[in-house]
Amino acid sequence: MSDARSEILARIARATSTGSPSSWEEIPRDYRQSSTASDRELVDLLTHRLHDYDAQVVEASSSDAATAVAAMLKAREVSRIVIPPGLQSSLLPPGFNFIEDTGLSHAELNQCEGILTECTLAIAETGTIVLQNVPGQGRRAATLVPDYHLCIVDAAKIVATVPEAIERLNPTAHLATTFISGPSATADIEMTRIKGVHGPRFLDVVLLLE
């Protein structure tokens, strides 16, 4: 008897021997792949979608980013905050306990109240921020275990649609990638959306315009 792999592949070969081959390029793609929205419209749409998920959004310029971060952290009463390696230091306000994630244990992460990151891009239509394991965003566990996530989104990184996002991510597809659309939630009980089951219960965004 042959091994499972060759047996399954042989079964597939038999099953598909009669159909006519097609190329991937022939698949019709008449859906919207991009949008003509202006930068301002994208910012507004993203903000609207994030509000739908109960995330707070503030706009700031790069020069007052740290001030905006401080205001958010204060409002959420969060002071012990993980930061991924490589986060721009200009984003960090004084007066908070920022702990760089140099391989914190799960228990240590669990003792932190929040995490501050940048992002690779954001999708306006769906209110999604996309994180990858690169400097300023870090490994996946760090944005998961603490109860609060504050994300800095550079407005230049906003795309309108999911296909645009995927196209931009394509060259770095091999990186660990997480799409985050609002705080952790569930609708498992009577289809009522409840915020915060296991991931961060609170998510806020600072939008950097120019």
Binding site: R49, T178, I180, P183
Partner: peptide, 21 residues
């Protein structure tokens, strides 16, 4: 599936990522 524009989390990983997962 859930009538959401996007569900809260999508994870994509490729094999093993040293130092991450």
């Amino acid at each position: 599936a859930t009538g959401e524009r996007m569900n809260p989390y999508n994870s994509i990983w490729t094999g093993v990522h040293p130092g991450d997962g």
